[in-house]
Design a protein around this nucleic acid. Structure first.
Length: 576
RNA sequence: CGGGGUGUAGCGCAGUUUGGUAGCGCGUUUGGUUCGGGACCAAAAGGUCGCAGGUUCAAAUCCUGUCACCCCGACCA
Protein backbone atom coordinates (compact mmCIF):
# COMPACT_ATOMS: atom_id res chain seq x y z
CA UNK A 1 0.00 0.00 0.00
CA UNK A 2 1.04 3.56 -0.64
CA UNK A 3 0.24 6.38 1.73
CA UNK A 4 -0.31 8.54 -1.32
CA UNK A 5 -3.24 6.29 -2.28
CA UNK A 6 -4.56 5.26 1.15
CA UNK A 7 -8.16 6.31 1.61
CA UNK A 8 -8.94 8.32 4.69
CA UNK A 9 -7.47 11.33 6.43
CA UNK A 10 -5.30 11.34 9.49
CA UNK A 11 -6.03 14.16 11.88
CA UNK A 12 -3.68 16.21 13.98
CA UNK A 13 -6.33 17.28 16.43
CA UNK A 14 -8.29 15.07 18.76
CA UNK A 15 -11.94 14.84 17.73
CA UNK A 16 -14.23 16.59 20.18
CA UNK A 17 -16.51 13.65 20.91
CA UNK A 18 -13.84 11.11 21.77
CA UNK A 19 -13.39 10.59 25.48
CA UNK A 20 -11.15 7.55 25.52
CA UNK A 21 -7.73 7.19 23.95
CA UNK A 22 -8.37 4.21 21.69
CA UNK A 23 -11.41 5.93 20.23
CA UNK A 24 -9.54 9.17 19.58
CA UNK A 25 -6.55 7.38 18.03
CA UNK A 26 -8.67 5.18 15.80
CA UNK A 27 -10.53 8.23 14.50
CA UNK A 28 -7.35 10.29 14.16
CA UNK A 29 -5.55 7.47 12.40
CA UNK A 30 -8.29 6.91 9.84
CA UNK A 31 -9.34 3.48 11.14
CA UNK A 32 -13.01 4.23 11.75
CA UNK A 33 -15.61 6.82 10.84
CA UNK A 34 -18.80 7.16 12.77
CA UNK A 35 -22.06 6.83 10.85
CA UNK A 36 -24.49 6.85 13.78
CA UNK A 37 -24.46 6.33 17.51
CA UNK A 38 -22.59 3.07 18.00
CA UNK A 39 -22.34 2.43 14.26
CA UNK A 40 -19.04 2.80 12.44
CA UNK A 41 -17.52 2.33 9.02
CA UNK A 42 -14.14 0.63 9.06
CA UNK A 43 -11.58 2.23 6.75
CA UNK A 44 -8.78 0.13 5.23
CA UNK A 45 -6.42 0.24 8.24
CA UNK A 46 -9.27 -0.64 10.63
CA UNK A 47 -10.50 -3.40 8.40
CA UNK A 48 -7.03 -4.88 8.10
CA UNK A 49 -6.71 -5.03 11.89
CA UNK A 50 -10.06 -6.75 12.35
CA UNK A 51 -9.36 -9.12 9.48
CA UNK A 52 -6.17 -10.25 11.15
CA UNK A 53 -7.97 -10.77 14.44
CA UNK A 54 -10.58 -12.79 12.59
CA UNK A 55 -7.85 -14.90 11.01
CA UNK A 56 -6.36 -15.71 14.42
CA UNK A 57 -9.80 -16.58 15.79
CA UNK A 58 -10.53 -18.87 12.83
CA UNK A 59 -7.27 -20.71 13.27
CA UNK A 60 -7.89 -21.30 16.96
CA UNK A 61 -11.53 -22.29 16.50
CA UNK A 62 -10.58 -24.71 13.73
CA UNK A 63 -7.89 -26.12 16.03
CA UNK A 64 -10.54 -27.14 18.56
CA UNK A 65 -12.58 -28.83 15.82
CA UNK A 66 -14.91 -25.95 15.09
CA UNK A 67 -16.80 -25.85 11.81
CA UNK A 68 -17.42 -22.40 10.37
CA UNK A 69 -20.95 -21.57 9.23
CA UNK A 70 -22.83 -18.35 8.52
CA UNK A 71 -26.24 -17.72 10.01
CA UNK A 72 -28.56 -15.02 8.65
CA UNK A 73 -28.66 -11.53 10.15
CA UNK A 74 -32.43 -11.33 9.81
CA UNK A 75 -34.23 -14.19 11.50
CA UNK A 76 -37.89 -15.09 11.70
CA UNK A 77 -39.38 -14.18 15.05
CA UNK A 78 -40.86 -17.67 15.27
CA UNK A 79 -37.49 -19.09 16.24
CA UNK A 80 -37.17 -16.54 19.01
CA UNK A 81 -40.70 -17.26 20.14
CA UNK A 82 -39.76 -20.93 20.45
CA UNK A 83 -36.92 -20.12 22.83
CA UNK A 84 -39.04 -17.56 24.64
CA UNK A 85 -36.59 -14.75 24.02
CA UNK A 86 -38.84 -12.82 21.62
CA UNK A 87 -40.63 -11.57 24.70
CA UNK A 88 -38.02 -11.99 27.43
CA UNK A 89 -35.35 -9.81 25.81
CA UNK A 90 -35.83 -6.06 25.93
CA UNK A 91 -35.50 -3.32 23.37
CA UNK A 92 -31.92 -4.22 22.50
CA UNK A 93 -33.42 -6.89 20.25
CA UNK A 94 -34.52 -5.10 17.08
CA UNK A 95 -37.90 -6.36 15.96
CA UNK A 96 -39.27 -5.62 12.51
CA UNK A 97 -41.90 -6.87 10.12
CA UNK A 98 -41.52 -7.91 6.51
CA UNK A 99 -43.92 -6.90 3.70
CA UNK A 100 -46.28 -9.69 4.61
CA UNK A 101 -46.46 -8.46 8.18
CA UNK A 102 -44.43 -11.35 9.57
CA UNK A 103 -42.36 -10.60 12.68
CA UNK A 104 -38.60 -10.66 12.19
CA UNK A 105 -35.63 -9.94 14.41
CA UNK A 106 -32.06 -8.81 13.81
CA UNK A 107 -29.80 -11.49 15.24
CA UNK A 108 -28.11 -10.19 18.37
CA UNK A 109 -26.83 -13.66 19.18
CA UNK A 110 -27.51 -16.93 17.42
CA UNK A 111 -28.43 -19.72 19.83
CA UNK A 112 -31.80 -20.07 18.09
CA UNK A 113 -30.24 -20.22 14.64
CA UNK A 114 -27.66 -22.72 15.87
CA UNK A 115 -30.34 -25.00 17.28
CA UNK A 116 -32.41 -24.56 14.11
CA UNK A 117 -29.47 -25.89 12.12
CA UNK A 118 -28.30 -28.53 14.58
CA UNK A 119 -31.65 -30.11 15.41
CA UNK A 120 -31.96 -31.43 11.88
CA UNK A 121 -28.29 -32.14 11.41
CA UNK A 122 -27.57 -34.11 14.59
CA UNK A 123 -30.27 -36.65 15.30
CA UNK A 124 -27.90 -39.44 16.25
CA UNK A 125 -25.58 -39.63 19.24
CA UNK A 126 -22.83 -40.59 16.79
CA UNK A 127 -22.71 -36.98 15.53
CA UNK A 128 -21.75 -35.64 18.95
CA UNK A 129 -19.92 -33.67 20.12
CA UNK A 130 -19.56 -30.88 17.58
CA UNK A 131 -19.03 -27.14 17.50
CA UNK A 132 -20.19 -24.64 14.91
CA UNK A 133 -19.07 -21.05 14.77
CA UNK A 134 -19.42 -17.94 12.67
CA UNK A 135 -17.93 -14.48 12.32
CA UNK A 136 -20.77 -12.19 11.60
CA UNK A 137 -22.46 -8.86 12.11
CA UNK A 138 -24.61 -8.46 15.17
CA UNK A 139 -26.95 -5.62 15.89
CA UNK A 140 -27.98 -4.78 19.43
CA UNK A 141 -29.86 -1.59 20.11
CA UNK A 142 -27.80 -0.77 23.18
CA UNK A 143 -29.30 1.86 25.44
CA UNK A 144 -25.97 3.57 25.57
CA UNK A 145 -23.22 3.02 23.03
CA UNK A 146 -19.93 4.74 23.83
CA UNK A 147 -16.20 4.82 23.52
CA UNK A 148 -15.69 4.16 19.81
CA UNK A 149 -15.50 0.42 19.12
CA UNK A 150 -15.54 -0.45 22.83
CA UNK A 151 -19.32 -0.47 23.05
CA UNK A 152 -21.27 -0.30 19.82
CA UNK A 153 -24.63 -1.26 18.45
CA UNK A 154 -23.45 -2.96 15.28
CA UNK A 155 -20.38 -5.12 15.47
CA UNK A 156 -18.68 -8.24 14.24
CA UNK A 157 -18.70 -11.10 16.66
CA UNK A 158 -17.31 -14.58 16.63
CA UNK A 159 -19.97 -16.74 18.19
CA UNK A 160 -19.61 -20.47 18.64
CA UNK A 161 -22.03 -23.16 19.81
CA UNK A 162 -21.07 -26.62 20.96
CA UNK A 163 -23.41 -29.59 21.43
CA UNK A 164 -22.81 -32.52 23.78
CA UNK A 165 -24.47 -35.64 25.09
CA UNK A 166 -23.12 -35.36 28.64
CA UNK A 167 -22.26 -32.60 31.07
CA UNK A 168 -18.81 -34.12 31.47
CA UNK A 169 -18.20 -33.84 27.75
CA UNK A 170 -19.36 -30.22 27.77
CA UNK A 171 -16.97 -29.48 30.61
CA UNK A 172 -14.08 -31.09 28.76
CA UNK A 173 -14.83 -29.05 25.67
CA UNK A 174 -15.38 -25.90 27.72
CA UNK A 175 -11.87 -26.30 29.09
CA UNK A 176 -10.45 -26.67 25.57
CA UNK A 177 -12.25 -23.52 24.53
CA UNK A 178 -10.92 -21.68 27.58
CA UNK A 179 -7.38 -22.54 26.50
CA UNK A 180 -8.12 -21.55 22.90
CA UNK A 181 -9.33 -18.16 24.14
CA UNK A 182 -6.17 -17.64 26.11
CA UNK A 183 -4.21 -18.38 22.95
CA UNK A 184 -6.32 -15.97 20.90
CA UNK A 185 -5.78 -13.06 23.25
CA UNK A 186 -2.11 -13.80 23.60
CA UNK A 187 -1.61 -14.04 19.84
CA UNK A 188 -3.56 -10.82 19.32
CA UNK A 189 -1.14 -9.15 21.71
CA UNK A 190 -3.77 -8.42 24.34
CA UNK A 191 -1.64 -8.89 27.42
CA UNK A 192 -3.64 -8.04 30.49
CA UNK A 193 -6.56 -10.42 29.94
CA UNK A 194 -7.88 -12.58 32.75
CA UNK A 195 -10.79 -14.99 32.92
CA UNK A 196 -13.34 -14.29 35.63
CA UNK A 197 -16.43 -16.12 36.82
CA UNK A 198 -19.54 -14.36 35.60
CA UNK A 199 -23.26 -14.09 35.92
CA UNK A 200 -24.91 -15.67 32.88
CA UNK A 201 -27.68 -13.10 32.59
CA UNK A 202 -30.14 -13.50 29.75
CA UNK A 203 -28.11 -16.29 28.16
CA UNK A 204 -29.18 -18.74 30.82
CA UNK A 205 -27.05 -21.61 32.02
CA UNK A 206 -24.86 -21.95 35.05
CA UNK A 207 -21.10 -21.85 34.70
CA UNK A 208 -19.70 -19.02 32.64
CA UNK A 209 -16.50 -17.05 32.36
CA UNK A 210 -15.77 -13.66 30.94
CA UNK A 211 -12.37 -12.75 29.53
CA UNK A 212 -11.56 -9.31 30.77
CA UNK A 213 -8.91 -6.84 29.74
CA UNK A 214 -7.89 -5.07 32.92
CA UNK A 215 -8.09 -1.33 32.29
CA UNK A 216 -9.31 1.70 34.17
CA UNK A 217 -11.77 2.60 31.39
CA UNK A 218 -13.45 -0.83 31.61
CA UNK A 219 -17.17 -0.80 32.26
CA UNK A 220 -17.24 -4.03 34.21
CA UNK A 221 -16.23 -4.26 37.85
CA UNK A 222 -14.22 -7.26 38.95
CA UNK A 223 -13.38 -8.76 42.30
CA UNK A 224 -9.92 -10.33 42.33
CA UNK A 225 -8.37 -12.14 45.25
CA UNK A 226 -4.70 -11.33 45.87
CA UNK A 227 -4.28 -14.43 48.01
CA UNK A 228 -5.74 -17.19 45.82
CA UNK A 229 -6.91 -17.70 42.21
CA UNK A 230 -10.42 -16.39 42.74
CA UNK A 231 -11.50 -13.86 40.12
CA UNK A 232 -15.12 -12.93 39.43
CA UNK A 233 -17.28 -10.29 37.93
CA UNK A 234 -18.62 -8.41 40.91
CA UNK A 235 -22.12 -9.47 39.83
CA UNK A 236 -21.11 -13.05 40.45
CA UNK A 237 -18.98 -12.50 43.54
CA UNK A 238 -20.46 -13.72 46.80
CA UNK A 239 -20.25 -11.13 49.54
CA UNK A 240 -18.69 -12.48 52.71
CA UNK A 241 -18.30 -10.46 55.89
CA UNK A 242 -16.89 -11.05 59.35
CA UNK A 243 -19.34 -10.27 62.16
CA UNK A 244 -17.34 -11.92 64.95
CA UNK A 245 -16.81 -8.56 66.65
CA UNK A 246 -20.55 -7.91 66.93
CA UNK A 247 -21.69 -10.63 69.31
CA UNK A 248 -22.86 -8.60 72.31
CA UNK A 249 -26.63 -8.70 72.78
CA UNK A 250 -28.85 -5.85 73.92
CA UNK A 251 -32.53 -5.48 74.70
CA UNK A 252 -34.73 -4.29 71.84
CA UNK A 253 -35.35 -0.61 72.55
CA UNK A 254 -37.37 2.01 70.67
CA UNK A 255 -35.37 5.24 70.56
CA UNK A 256 -36.25 8.64 69.10
CA UNK A 257 -33.99 9.65 66.21
CA UNK A 258 -35.46 12.95 65.03
CA UNK A 259 -34.68 13.72 61.38
CA UNK A 260 -31.96 11.06 61.32
CA UNK A 261 -32.86 9.43 58.04
CA UNK A 262 -29.51 8.20 56.75
CA UNK A 263 -27.34 5.43 58.13
CA UNK A 264 -24.47 7.84 58.72
CA UNK A 265 -26.69 10.24 60.69
CA UNK A 266 -28.28 7.52 62.80
CA UNK A 267 -24.99 5.79 63.55
CA UNK A 268 -23.35 9.04 64.60
CA UNK A 269 -26.39 10.06 66.68
CA UNK A 270 -26.56 6.72 68.49
CA UNK A 271 -22.76 6.37 68.63
CA UNK A 272 -22.79 2.99 66.90
CA UNK A 273 -20.55 1.82 64.04
CA UNK A 274 -22.20 1.68 60.60
CA UNK A 275 -21.67 -2.08 60.44
CA UNK A 276 -23.92 -2.51 63.47
CA UNK A 277 -26.85 -1.00 61.60
CA UNK A 278 -29.39 -2.54 59.30
CA UNK A 279 -29.95 -0.62 56.07
CA UNK A 280 -33.15 -0.95 54.03
CA UNK A 281 -32.91 -0.63 50.26
CA UNK A 282 -36.26 -0.45 48.49
CA UNK A 283 -36.97 -1.69 44.97
CA UNK A 284 -40.08 -2.36 42.94
CA UNK A 285 -40.76 -5.17 40.52
CA UNK A 286 -41.07 -3.85 36.97
CA UNK A 287 -43.98 -6.17 36.28
CA UNK A 288 -46.43 -5.01 38.95
CA UNK A 289 -44.61 -2.29 40.93
CA UNK A 290 -44.80 -4.44 44.04
CA UNK A 291 -42.16 -3.59 46.64
CA UNK A 292 -39.03 -5.53 47.48
CA UNK A 293 -37.07 -4.42 50.53
CA UNK A 294 -33.56 -5.74 50.98
CA UNK A 295 -31.92 -5.34 54.37
CA UNK A 296 -28.14 -5.22 54.34
CA UNK A 297 -25.50 -4.32 56.85
CA UNK A 298 -25.33 -0.55 57.06
CA UNK A 299 -21.85 -0.17 55.60
CA UNK A 300 -22.65 -2.26 52.50
CA UNK A 301 -24.58 -1.67 49.29
CA UNK A 302 -27.07 -3.78 47.41
CA UNK A 303 -25.94 -5.01 43.99
CA UNK A 304 -28.96 -4.80 41.72
CA UNK A 305 -28.01 -7.66 39.45
CA UNK A 306 -27.59 -9.99 42.41
CA UNK A 307 -30.92 -8.80 43.78
CA UNK A 308 -32.56 -9.39 40.42
CA UNK A 309 -31.22 -12.92 40.31
CA UNK A 310 -32.41 -13.56 43.86
CA UNK A 311 -35.89 -12.16 43.26
CA UNK A 312 -36.10 -13.80 39.86
CA UNK A 313 -37.58 -10.69 38.27
CA UNK A 314 -36.64 -7.32 36.89
CA UNK A 315 -36.64 -4.61 39.54
CA UNK A 316 -35.94 -0.89 39.67
CA UNK A 317 -35.20 1.54 42.51
CA UNK A 318 -38.48 2.31 44.24
CA UNK A 319 -40.64 5.37 44.29
CA UNK A 320 -41.98 5.40 47.83
CA UNK A 321 -45.56 6.68 47.98
CA UNK A 322 -47.53 7.56 51.15
CA UNK A 323 -50.04 4.76 50.34
CA UNK A 324 -47.29 2.14 50.44
CA UNK A 325 -47.06 2.40 54.22
CA UNK A 326 -43.27 2.61 53.89
CA UNK A 327 -41.67 5.29 56.06
CA UNK A 328 -38.64 6.41 54.04
CA UNK A 329 -35.59 6.86 56.24
CA UNK A 330 -37.02 4.81 59.09
CA UNK A 331 -37.62 1.45 57.44
CA UNK A 332 -37.03 -1.63 59.56
CA UNK A 333 -38.01 -5.29 59.52
CA UNK A 334 -40.35 -5.05 62.51
CA UNK A 335 -43.97 -4.64 61.47
CA UNK A 336 -43.60 -4.55 57.70
CA UNK A 337 -46.57 -5.95 55.80
CA UNK A 338 -44.98 -9.04 54.28
CA UNK A 339 -48.13 -9.85 52.36
CA UNK A 340 -47.56 -6.78 50.19
CA UNK A 341 -43.81 -6.43 50.49
CA UNK A 342 -41.12 -8.97 49.77
CA UNK A 343 -38.57 -8.75 52.60
CA UNK A 344 -35.05 -10.05 52.13
CA UNK A 345 -32.20 -10.27 54.61
CA UNK A 346 -28.70 -10.19 53.24
CA UNK A 347 -26.36 -12.62 54.89
CA UNK A 348 -24.15 -9.75 56.01
CA UNK A 349 -26.69 -9.38 58.85
CA UNK A 350 -26.34 -12.99 59.96
CA UNK A 351 -24.81 -13.31 63.41
CA UNK A 352 -24.97 -9.66 64.42
CA UNK A 353 -26.56 -9.76 67.86
CA UNK A 354 -27.57 -6.14 68.28
CA UNK A 355 -28.50 -3.99 65.29
CA UNK A 356 -29.80 -0.49 64.85
CA UNK A 357 -32.76 -0.59 62.50
CA UNK A 358 -35.69 1.57 61.48
CA UNK A 359 -38.91 1.32 63.47
CA UNK A 360 -41.26 1.98 60.53
CA UNK A 361 -42.30 5.08 62.43
CA UNK A 362 -41.25 8.62 61.59
CA UNK A 363 -38.24 9.74 63.67
CA UNK A 364 -37.79 6.42 65.54
CA UNK A 365 -35.30 3.56 65.32
CA UNK A 366 -34.75 0.41 67.34
CA UNK A 367 -31.48 -0.48 68.96
CA UNK A 368 -30.55 -3.98 70.08
CA UNK A 369 -32.44 -5.60 67.19
CA UNK A 370 -31.62 -9.29 66.86
CA UNK A 371 -32.99 -10.80 63.66
CA UNK A 372 -33.68 -14.29 64.93
CA UNK A 373 -34.82 -13.32 68.43
CA UNK A 374 -37.03 -10.38 67.45
CA UNK A 375 -38.11 -11.18 63.89
CA UNK A 376 -37.84 -14.96 63.61
CA UNK A 377 -35.93 -17.43 61.52
CA UNK A 378 -35.11 -16.14 58.07
CA UNK A 379 -33.22 -17.56 55.14
CA UNK A 380 -30.48 -15.15 54.34
CA UNK A 381 -29.75 -14.19 50.74
CA UNK A 382 -26.68 -12.78 49.03
CA UNK A 383 -27.43 -9.42 47.46
CA UNK A 384 -24.64 -7.19 48.79
CA UNK A 385 -21.88 -5.81 46.64
CA UNK A 386 -18.41 -7.17 47.38
CA UNK A 387 -16.10 -4.47 48.69
CA UNK A 388 -12.37 -3.71 48.39
CA UNK A 389 -10.52 -5.48 51.18
CA UNK A 390 -13.48 -7.79 51.57
CA UNK A 391 -13.29 -11.46 52.32
CA UNK A 392 -12.59 -13.83 49.44
CA UNK A 393 -15.42 -16.39 49.18
CA UNK A 394 -12.93 -19.11 48.26
CA UNK A 395 -9.90 -18.71 50.55
CA UNK A 396 -11.53 -16.66 53.29
CA UNK A 397 -8.77 -14.06 53.47
CA UNK A 398 -9.63 -10.34 53.44
CA UNK A 399 -7.76 -9.87 50.18
CA UNK A 400 -10.32 -8.85 47.57
CA UNK A 401 -9.25 -6.16 45.15
CA UNK A 402 -11.76 -4.37 42.94
CA UNK A 403 -10.67 -3.59 39.36
CA UNK A 404 -12.25 -2.48 36.12
CA UNK A 405 -12.21 -4.50 32.94
CA UNK A 406 -13.48 -4.63 29.37
CA UNK A 407 -15.19 -7.88 28.44
CA UNK A 408 -13.48 -9.07 25.28
CA UNK A 409 -14.90 -12.57 25.26
CA UNK A 410 -17.07 -14.99 27.15
CA UNK A 411 -17.81 -18.68 27.42
CA UNK A 412 -21.00 -20.23 28.80
CA UNK A 413 -22.16 -23.66 29.77
CA UNK A 414 -25.72 -23.29 28.60
CA UNK A 415 -27.13 -26.67 29.51
CA UNK A 416 -30.39 -27.66 27.82
CA UNK A 417 -32.21 -24.31 27.96
CA UNK A 418 -32.36 -23.95 24.16
CA UNK A 419 -32.45 -27.59 23.14
CA UNK A 420 -35.44 -28.22 25.41
CA UNK A 421 -37.37 -25.08 24.55
CA UNK A 422 -36.74 -25.64 20.86
CA UNK A 423 -37.27 -29.40 20.89
CA UNK A 424 -33.87 -30.54 19.75
CA UNK A 425 -33.39 -34.24 20.44
CA UNK A 426 -31.17 -37.09 19.39
CA UNK A 427 -31.35 -40.85 19.75
CA UNK A 428 -28.84 -42.26 22.19
CA UNK A 429 -27.17 -45.71 22.09
CA UNK A 430 -30.27 -47.27 23.60
CA UNK A 431 -32.64 -45.71 21.11
CA UNK A 432 -34.14 -43.23 23.56
CA UNK A 433 -34.64 -39.56 22.80
CA UNK A 434 -32.39 -37.15 24.70
CA UNK A 435 -31.87 -33.41 24.81
CA UNK A 436 -28.28 -32.42 24.01
CA UNK A 437 -26.57 -29.83 26.15
CA UNK A 438 -24.91 -26.76 24.78
CA UNK A 439 -22.08 -24.37 25.35
CA UNK A 440 -21.66 -21.01 23.68
CA UNK A 441 -18.59 -18.89 23.20
CA UNK A 442 -18.30 -15.28 22.01
CA UNK A 443 -15.60 -12.79 21.11
CA UNK A 444 -16.20 -9.22 19.95
CA UNK A 445 -13.76 -8.57 17.12
CA UNK A 446 -13.91 -4.77 16.98
CA UNK A 447 -13.91 -4.47 20.73
CA UNK A 448 -10.78 -6.63 20.86
CA UNK A 449 -9.11 -4.36 18.30
CA UNK A 450 -10.02 -1.28 20.34
CA UNK A 451 -8.92 -3.02 23.54
CA UNK A 452 -5.48 -3.76 22.14
CA UNK A 453 -5.23 -0.13 21.03
CA UNK A 454 -6.30 1.02 24.46
CA UNK A 455 -3.74 -1.19 26.13
CA UNK A 456 -0.93 -0.55 23.68
CA UNK A 457 -0.53 3.03 22.53
CA UNK A 458 1.54 6.11 23.25
CA UNK A 459 0.76 9.79 22.86
CA UNK A 460 1.39 9.57 19.10
CA UNK A 461 -0.68 6.56 18.13
CA UNK A 462 -1.35 2.85 18.48
CA UNK A 463 1.55 0.47 19.04
CA UNK A 464 0.12 -2.57 17.29
CA UNK A 465 1.40 -6.08 17.94
CA UNK A 466 2.73 -7.42 14.65
CA UNK A 467 0.06 -10.11 14.55
CA UNK A 468 -2.76 -7.62 14.08
CA UNK A 469 -1.02 -4.47 12.82
CA UNK A 470 -2.60 -3.08 9.67
CA UNK A 471 0.84 -3.40 8.05
CA UNK A 472 3.86 -5.22 9.36
CA UNK A 473 6.34 -2.69 8.03
CA UNK A 474 6.26 0.93 7.01
CA UNK A 475 8.83 2.61 4.82
CA UNK A 476 9.22 6.28 5.62
CA UNK A 477 10.87 8.05 2.70
CA UNK A 478 12.21 11.45 3.65
CA UNK A 479 12.76 13.76 0.67
CA UNK A 480 10.69 11.60 -1.63
CA UNK A 481 11.09 14.45 -4.10
CA UNK A 482 14.75 13.49 -4.54
CA UNK A 483 15.84 10.74 -6.86
CA UNK A 484 17.93 8.58 -4.55
CA UNK A 485 15.70 8.21 -1.46
CA UNK A 486 12.70 7.72 -3.73
CA UNK A 487 14.46 4.98 -5.70
CA UNK A 488 15.84 3.18 -2.63
CA UNK A 489 12.44 3.36 -0.92
CA UNK A 490 10.71 1.90 -3.95
CA UNK A 491 13.28 -0.86 -4.30
CA UNK A 492 12.88 -1.80 -0.65
CA UNK A 493 9.11 -1.70 -1.01
CA UNK A 494 9.22 -4.10 -3.94
CA UNK A 495 11.68 -6.39 -2.19
CA UNK A 496 9.68 -6.53 1.05
CA UNK A 497 6.45 -7.26 -0.75
CA UNK A 498 8.11 -10.00 -2.76
CA UNK A 499 9.43 -11.48 0.48
CA UNK A 500 5.92 -11.56 1.96
CA UNK A 501 6.20 -8.62 4.33
CA UNK A 502 3.01 -6.55 4.42
CA UNK A 503 4.36 -3.10 3.76
CA UNK A 504 3.07 0.43 3.41
CA UNK A 505 5.35 3.06 1.92
CA UNK A 506 5.02 6.75 2.52
CA UNK A 507 5.99 7.93 -0.93
CA UNK A 508 4.65 11.45 -0.51
CA UNK A 509 6.88 14.49 -0.82
CA UNK A 510 5.84 15.91 2.54
CA UNK A 511 7.85 17.11 5.49
CA UNK A 512 9.52 14.69 7.86
CA UNK A 513 7.18 15.72 10.66
CA UNK A 514 4.12 14.68 8.65
CA UNK A 515 5.74 11.41 7.60
CA UNK A 516 6.63 10.41 11.16
CA UNK A 517 3.42 11.60 12.78
CA UNK A 518 1.24 9.69 10.37
CA UNK A 519 3.48 6.65 10.58
CA UNK A 520 2.92 6.69 14.34
CA UNK A 521 -0.84 6.71 13.76
CA UNK A 522 -0.56 3.73 11.40
CA UNK A 523 1.44 1.99 14.10
CA UNK A 524 3.29 -0.57 11.97
CA UNK A 525 5.70 -2.37 14.31
CA UNK A 526 8.66 -2.24 11.90
CA UNK A 527 9.79 1.07 10.45
CA UNK A 528 12.40 1.68 7.77
CA UNK A 529 13.47 5.27 7.37
CA UNK A 530 15.11 6.12 4.07
CA UNK A 531 16.70 9.57 4.05
CA UNK A 532 19.48 11.42 2.23
CA UNK A 533 21.34 11.72 5.51
CA UNK A 534 21.63 7.95 6.02
CA UNK A 535 21.99 7.12 2.38
CA UNK A 536 25.17 9.21 2.32
CA UNK A 537 26.67 6.39 4.41
CA UNK A 538 24.85 3.71 2.45
CA UNK A 539 22.52 3.06 5.40
CA UNK A 540 18.86 3.07 6.24
CA UNK A 541 17.39 3.27 9.73
CA UNK A 542 15.51 0.30 11.17
CA UNK A 543 13.29 0.96 14.20
CA UNK A 544 10.36 -0.60 15.97
CA UNK A 545 7.23 1.33 16.84
CA UNK A 546 7.65 0.46 20.51
CA UNK A 547 11.15 2.06 20.40
CA UNK A 548 12.87 -1.10 21.64
CA UNK A 549 15.07 -1.26 18.56
CA UNK A 550 16.77 1.54 16.69
CA UNK A 551 19.73 0.83 14.45
CA UNK A 552 21.45 1.69 11.20
CA UNK A 553 21.54 -1.05 8.59
CA UNK A 554 23.35 -1.07 5.24
CA UNK A 555 20.85 -0.81 2.39
CA UNK A 556 21.95 -4.15 1.00
CA UNK A 557 21.18 -5.89 4.29
CA UNK A 558 17.86 -4.19 4.98
CA UNK A 559 15.66 -6.96 3.62
CA UNK A 560 17.38 -9.65 5.66
CA UNK A 561 17.24 -7.49 8.78
CA UNK A 562 13.50 -6.89 8.37
CA UNK A 563 12.80 -10.57 7.83
CA UNK A 564 14.75 -11.44 10.94
CA UNK A 565 12.99 -8.79 12.99
CA UNK A 566 9.58 -9.85 11.71
CA UNK A 567 10.25 -13.45 12.69
CA UNK A 568 11.39 -12.33 16.12
CA UNK A 569 8.28 -10.18 16.71
CA UNK A 570 5.96 -12.99 15.63
CA UNK A 571 7.78 -15.49 17.80
CA UNK A 572 7.27 -13.32 20.86
CA UNK A 573 3.49 -13.49 20.43
CA UNK A 574 3.00 -16.97 19.06
CA UNK A 575 4.86 -18.97 21.65
CA UNK A 576 2.70 -21.57 23.42
C1' C B 1 -35.75 6.45 30.19
C1' G B 2 -33.71 10.52 33.72
C1' G B 3 -29.66 14.58 34.33
C1' G B 4 -26.05 17.72 31.80
C1' G B 5 -23.82 19.51 27.23
C1' U B 6 -23.12 20.47 21.94
C1' G B 7 -24.92 21.25 16.78
C1' U B 8 -21.46 27.20 12.29
C1' A B 9 -16.61 24.32 5.74
C1' G B 10 -13.54 17.53 5.88
C1' C B 11 -11.36 18.36 11.41
C1' G B 12 -10.85 21.81 15.75
C1' C B 13 -13.30 26.31 17.08
C1' A B 14 -14.92 31.94 17.50
C1' G B 15 -19.23 34.77 16.55
C1' U B 16 -25.19 34.13 19.90
C1' U B 17 -25.29 37.93 25.94
C1' U B 18 -26.61 43.41 22.95
C1' G B 19 -30.31 40.95 15.61
C1' G B 20 -27.31 44.48 10.68
C1' U B 21 -22.70 41.48 4.29
C1' A B 22 -20.29 34.17 7.48
C1' G B 23 -15.04 34.30 10.42
C1' C B 24 -10.20 31.94 12.37
C1' G B 25 -6.59 27.71 12.64
C1' C B 26 -5.66 22.91 10.42
C1' G B 27 -6.67 20.19 6.02
C1' U B 28 -7.73 20.55 0.40
C1' U B 29 -6.23 22.88 -4.86
C1' U B 30 -2.38 25.88 -7.71
C1' G B 31 2.54 28.27 -7.92
C1' G B 32 7.12 29.15 -5.38
C1' U B 33 10.78 28.63 -1.24
C1' U B 34 12.03 24.94 2.55
C1' C B 35 13.31 19.67 4.38
C1' G B 36 14.86 14.15 10.21
C1' G B 37 9.12 15.04 14.36
C1' G B 38 2.69 17.88 12.02
C1' A B 39 7.56 24.34 7.67
C1' C B 40 6.88 29.29 5.04
C1' C B 41 4.95 32.89 1.25
C1' A B 42 1.17 33.95 -2.36
C1' A B 43 -3.42 32.84 -4.69
C1' A B 44 -7.97 29.79 -4.67
C1' A B 45 -12.04 26.37 -3.77
C1' G B 46 -15.31 24.91 0.08
C1' G B 47 -20.86 26.71 4.57
C1' U B 48 -29.35 26.14 3.05
C1' C B 49 -25.05 28.37 10.56
C1' G B 50 -28.90 20.56 12.49
C1' C B 51 -34.24 20.93 10.80
C1' A B 52 -39.24 23.29 10.87
C1' G B 53 -42.25 27.24 12.18
C1' G B 54 -42.67 32.18 14.39
C1' U B 55 -41.21 37.54 15.67
C1' U B 56 -38.77 41.47 12.68
C1' C B 57 -37.39 46.06 7.50
C1' A B 58 -33.52 42.42 8.78
C1' A B 59 -32.24 36.09 12.41
C1' A B 60 -26.24 31.91 13.18
C1' U B 61 -28.02 35.44 17.04
C1' C B 62 -34.66 36.33 19.88
C1' C B 63 -39.23 32.76 20.64
C1' U B 64 -41.68 27.77 19.94
C1' G B 65 -41.22 22.96 18.41
C1' U B 66 -38.31 19.05 16.65
C1' C B 67 -34.06 15.98 15.30
C1' A B 68 -29.11 14.40 15.92
C1' C B 69 -24.68 13.60 18.57
C1' C B 70 -21.52 13.52 23.19
C1' C B 71 -20.93 12.85 28.61
C1' C B 72 -23.02 10.96 33.51
C1' G B 73 -26.74 7.58 35.43
C1' A B 74 -30.35 3.62 34.57
C1' C B 75 -29.66 -0.64 31.29
C1' C B 76 -26.50 -4.38 29.03
C1' A B 77 -24.41 -11.82 26.37
Amino acid sequence: MRMSELLGERYKEKPADCSIESHALMVRGGYIKQVNTGVYTLLPPGRRVTQKIERIIREEMDAIDGQEVLFPVVLPADLWKESGRFTSVGKELVRLTDRMGADMVLGMTHEEAAVHLARDAAKSYAKYPFMIYQLQTKFRDEPRARGGLIRVREFTMKDAYSFHTTQADLETYYARCYVAYERIFKRAGCKDVIAVLSDSGMMGGRVSHEFMLLTAIGEDTLAICDNCDFKANIEACASVVDNSALLATEALTLVPTPEMATIEDVARFLQKPCNATCKAVVYQRNADESYVIAFVRGDLEVHETKLRNTVGAEVHPAVITPESGIVAGFIGPMGLDTKKITVLFDRSLEGICALVCGANKQDYHYTGFNVERDYGMVSYVDVARATPGGICPVCGKPSLRISNGIEVGNIFQLGDKYTKSMSMQYLDENGTLQYPIMGCYGIGVGRLAASVCEESHDEYGPVWPITIAPWEAQICVLRADQEEPKRVGEELYAALQKAGVETIIDDRAVSAGVVFSEADLIGAPIRLTVSPRNLADGMIELTTRDKRIKKQVPVAEALAAVLELKAQLFAELNQP
